[in-house]
Amino acid sequence: MTPIENTVTHQQSSHCESGVVANMLNSQGLALSEPMVFGLSSALTFVYLPMVKVGGLPLIAYRMPPKSIISSVCKKLGVKLSSQKFSNAEQGMKALDEALAQGKLVGLQTSVFWLPYFPEDMRFQFNAHNLTVYGKNAEGDYLISDPVFEHVVTCRPEDLKKARFAKGMLAAKGLMYVMDVPTEPVNLAPQIRSSIKKTAKMMSGLILPFFGIKGIRHLAKKINKLDKKSPQEAGMFLANIVRMQEEIGTGGAGFRFMFASFLDEASTLLDDKALFEISQYATEIGDLWREFAMKAVLYCKKRKNISLQDVVDSLELCADQEVILREKLLQWSK
């Protein structure tokens, strides 16, 4: 077959969704960094849902649900987003080929487990991984810019098909999307302000104790009660938090560093010193989250000098500091 290779700017990213958006927009000449995409979409948050179990452990997330970055950034910047789902896998693959033949970059939602280029220990049943397809080689394999990888990769059609149409929670149903950037230049300044305001407002949490700072404190209370569980169970509970915070699609510290990076970039863009200071404050909070992760793991390893109370205090400190960060952000975006 005739190979197709559409122009793509592949830049490694911390997180798949913000990375795909940044890469797809950059490739079309709309220059935006990954942290800028993340910040503009107000994706930073905290969620602890004890009643939703993933692999027997509660759901913990540090960002908004899948697809929210894509839709929110496109809306804010006036990027035309055309997305399609398919009930029939063959049709879904045909539509992908057609879009590639038209010279488009195609974003896909896929299941991590069925992508063979992922290392074994990183493969798990998660259906909302984003990547960009930019062409097809002579053997018929797809050319893929997967933002969490250093370099571009390839994938056989049958594997990509399985990854796009895997059933289950957050099933992609073959979701594919194409972005068309606006012709007029975009003014980021007002968007930055409104997105920071939104992030700050969300930080206090809703009425329910599962979100934002309330969610963090709720989780701290739960950790406090872990000594009533077996060491094995307590260990799994803590390790799960650390995994969600450090491993699962993040630039570390539960996206806090990426958010601080966004504030830093915004401060340069707006020539705003106050915002830079807030960015440094957010960096310190990121460091506190890393410290919490370290203490949690030390506790798992049964180091005598770390008590459960130390782990709880460490998490409470993150919550306390996020209260102050929230005030600073609200003050700035008023």
Partner: peptide, 9 residues
């Protein structure tokens, strides 16, 4: 730290 948590899982 992350590696420990991942390997545990």
């Amino acid at each position: 730290v992350e590696g420990f948590a991942t390997e545990m899982a």
